[in-house]
Amino acid sequence: MSMEEKITVRKQKVVKSHTRQKLFFFGGLAIAVLLVAAFAPYLTPYDPYEQDLSKALLPPGNGHLLGTDRYGRDMLSRVIMGSQTTIFSALLLVVIITIVGGAVGIFCGWHGGKLDAFLMRVSDIFLAFPGMVFAIAVASVLSGGVINAVVALACISWPKYARITRSQAMMIKHLPYISAAKLSGSGTWKIVWKHIVPNIAGPVIVTAVLDIGTMIMEIAGLSFLGLGAAPPTAEWGSMMSNGRSMLQTSPWVILSPGCAIFLTVIIFNLAGDTVRDVLDPKQRKR
């Protein structure tokens, strides 16, 4: 092995080790956030929904780490509880669009023909609209609520996954091992499930993880506009919206959920980047 080759191998090992560290770090943070969301009811120091007007708008401190809102509810408790609503609805959304978009994409890529052309034109129509505007319109028609916000965002987000999986499926279906599987008598379902899905999972998972942050922002955005979570549900977007008028007088009311969104989105984005580095090394920055 020449010196140059040795250096290259060494460099690859360093990068691999660095990527692994990043994965542990950001993955750990993301899991920590998910655990907080999952066990939110057990972690809140106060009841996030209990009003005590005698404690309205207390600044941070005085037994309330992040202060209280105008109804005297503990902000820390509401931010923790809000993580459950916001993050889990974002995860639900990502799962829905991954499954629906993936299924449509695989079907189109595998089947082809007129139905493929039709479904892709439908996805073109969805992609032609400004996403958030379309989501606002759908959420307005469905009259608000977290589930309706998820449905509205799912309506506009599935085509991206359909596109990715379709292109991957089209590429894979002509590869020799698929032909071999066909020749060995495997049925369509078996080929799709055993050979196509596992082989296109990488880019789809990377896209999905990267999308979690975006979806958190979009769900919070709809709630901020009053089209997501209804009062008194603790949800970061609606908490920010309710605190708007107090930005100058009691800034902690809006900054607490704002910072929670900021940190969570950063964590999921960086975790998504790292997952991409691991699953899709070709895309990795050199």
Binding site: Y49, E50, Q51, L53, R70, Y71, G226, A230, P231, P232
Partner: peptide, 23 residues
């Protein structure tokens, strides 16, 4: 009015009434 709605939602919950606000 939205403030009243959310306040009522909390105080009526104390006596066991579920208030669904349509604002």
């Amino acid at each position: 009015l939205p403030l009243l709605a959310e306040s009522v939602q909390a105080t009526l919950k104390e006596i066991g009434i579920d208030v669904q606000v349509n604002n």
